[in-house]
Write a protein that binds this DNA or RNA. Structure first.
Length: 254
DNA sequence: ATGGCAGCGCGCCGCTGA
């Protein structure tokens, strides 16, 4: 079984890439972020035709998340029930007995921004909710765009990024607090190339110069860690014409 | 030096993203 996450930066623009990528990578579960569309616009028929069922929650212009699955999606939850939020950033479903949580963590903009305070509050509430979910789901995976580079290995220029949003201590502590619930960054279970990133700025030849960050993650509970045989970032679609600025991350479970 | 891409909105610039 393969589970994956991809921030598509507009599903309207990226639908052809999504369908191509699924043809090339017929994963069992794919979590999407930044669909940027209201639910009435969601391309259900095209995704069904590709062999996937789908649950989603979106809004105009910003945010929006979805879970695609070959197997049925059960017990779908939209948003964190503990956090009143107009922004559509979370969707969860049980698939093949695994609780799948798809998350689009707020960006935060800058550490002195109101959006940063919102990001930290959002993450604190996510932790509270996940703690509850973990009481009833021993097999749980939380996949998504965390907008946090866990440590300096995940940053192309740690000096330039030191203390900046996506790399600041408080965000990293919030991520550590999630991990401390009993989760593991699946990417670091395995030997990985240095300078492995999942996002590259569109500007200044970011991808070509590999000036990126690793901010898209798949966290697993211990029972899924035991089943996890691989985790990889697929840089291929970042090279396609008119790409998302993020690459998909794929974890393989036995 | 706050730029630079990209997507979106009743658009022709301003916002958000990361």
């Amino acid at each position: 079984m393969q589970i994956a996450t991809w921030n598509v930066n507009s599903l309207k623009v990226r639908l052809p890439h999504l369908l191509q990528w699924l043809t090339d990578n017929p994963v069992d579960v794919l979590c999407l972020q930044e669909t940027k569309m209201t639910d009435d616009k969601f391309p259900v028929a095209e995704i069904n035709a590709a062999g996937y069922q789908v649950a989603f929650t979106g809004q105009k212009t910003y945010n929006g998340v979805a879970i695609l699955s070959k197997l049925p999606l059960e017990d779908v939850v939209r948003n964190n029930p503990r956090f009143a939020d107009e922004q559509q950033r979370i969707i969860a479903a049980t698939i093949g007995g695994i609780r799948i949580v798809c998350a689009y963590v707020p960006n935060g903009q800058s550490v002195d921004s109101d959006k940063y305070a919102y990001k930290l509050a959002w993450l604190a509430s996510l932790r509270e909710w996940l703690a509850e979910e973990l009481q009833t789901h021993t097999e749980l995976a939380i996949l998504g765009d965390y907008n946090i580079a866990p440590d300096d290995r995940d940053v192309h220029d740690p000096v330039a990024w030191a203390g900046q949003v996506l790399c600041s201590d408080r965000e990293r502590a919030a991520l550590t607090a999630l991990v401390d619930l009993g989760l593991t960054d699946s990417y670091r279970l395995f030997e990985q190339a240095e300078k492995s990133f999942s996002w590259w700025d569109y500007r200044q030849l970011g991808f070509r110069l590999n000036k990126g960050l690793r901010i898209d993650h798949i966290l697993l509970t211990a029972s899924l860690v035991a089943r996890c045989t691989a985790c990889a970032i697929d840089r291929a679609p970042r090279k396609w014409e008119q790409p998302s600025d993020h690459a998909p991350v794929v974890a393989t479970l036995s």
